[in-house]
Design a protein around this nucleic acid. Sequence first.
DNA 1: CAATGATTTAATCAAATGATTAAAATACTT
DNA 2: AAGTATTTTAATCATTTGATTAAATCATTG
Lengths: 204, 204
Amino acid sequence: MAAKKNIPVETNTEEKIKVAARKVFMRNGFSATRTRDIAEEAGINLALLNYYFRSKKKLFDLVMQEKIQKLFGIIAPVLNDTATTLETKIELIVSGYIDVLVENPDLPTFVLNELRKKNFEIIQKIPLDKLITQSSFIQQLREKRADINPAHFLVNILGMTVFPFVAKPMLMMTGMVNEKSFNTLMNERKQLIPVWIKAILKAK
Amino acid sequence: MAAKKNIPVETNTEEKIKVAARKVFMRNGFSATRTRDIAEEAGINLALLNYYFRSKKKLFDLVMQEKIQKLFGIIAPVLNDTATTLETKIELIVSGYIDVLVENPDLPTFVLNELRKKNFEIIQKIPLDKLITQSSFIQQLREKRADINPAHFLVNILGMTVFPFVAKPMLMMTGMVNEKSFNTLMNERKQLIPVWIKAILKAK
DNA sequence: CAATGATTTAATCAAATGATTAAAATACTT
DNA sequence: AAGTATTTTAATCATTTGATTAAATCATTG
């Protein structure tokens, strides 16, 4: 590691490849992405990709790891914050997700589809199990409504929040939304979903 | 068309290829599927695939067309039935989707992801726009709650119903569900989602 | 500045893959 | 049964694609 010392991150070859890989893998998925596409997008020689990352698969795993962390990073800290109420947590999860997904609309479909196809070796195995089931969020829900299965409740919040992004191509196909009205709709949902979830919490 | 007359559908080569194509395309998506995989799954010579369907893309478009119709076929007739109440429609959509998706858990992620990647030429262009916006469902919703945007309302129902299937790999990764408890959960949701949606309808 | 190590390039490989072809086998018609 | 059309097969193409190699360039160190 002789060179590379004073080279700013943006012009660092390794970083240029990562940036390009994120973009191309996210757009096309693992199988439809050719290493040549990434090289071209990065403006580098194809051999450099293998020089820095060994293989297409290794580079992809790196990107996947990031994207999964991005997706869980929105919800994890909120679930475990003992300082906030259940209502506040709901608001934070909803607006947190919508803000990130308006900027990265393809993120959930990409991750969920690649997971489904098992195109990914889990590198960093986190004990998500306990992290969620022991969370402050679940405890607070139990106090309020011990009869509601936390899985149902979380699925409702995420379904209302994340699903529209997954279903976006279909919503556009049906003419129910266009590129502009979709974002308006999502911003409205930041206020609306917490109201609806509270209605569900009251329902019996 | 000389032969093929008395040949039962199951042993019909064209049909065998379609059955195999549905299976393999659904599991792997367009790009990760090789025509050789389909031929092997169908137990036929590779050349027959091109003989009957001209190309991988044409065969894929056929499968996509079917899958999209399957996905919309659940909801379309319910939305437009003037004989049922809004409450009944909600119940029918929810249980209709859950029943089909328990048997075809990969259907939504497959379709939504391939649509996202635009791996598909829409052959049969249906005026889904009017079909939905002019539907009995939307009219009934307007009568009950003119202030609720129908898009929000439909997204809520579909989000709560369809999203769990899309998120299944992630729910399993977090240890929140396993293969067995997932189906139990989905069956519970057939009863629960209509209750929750009614709570949303009452909320202000 | 020369020597050393890191980075980059052009050229090339080997395997995979969608598709085609010509011939063989099979079924249908008269 | 002979002749014709359809279906199936084995072999082969032409590209694409992930990866490697050897040589060239560049930067750093002593």
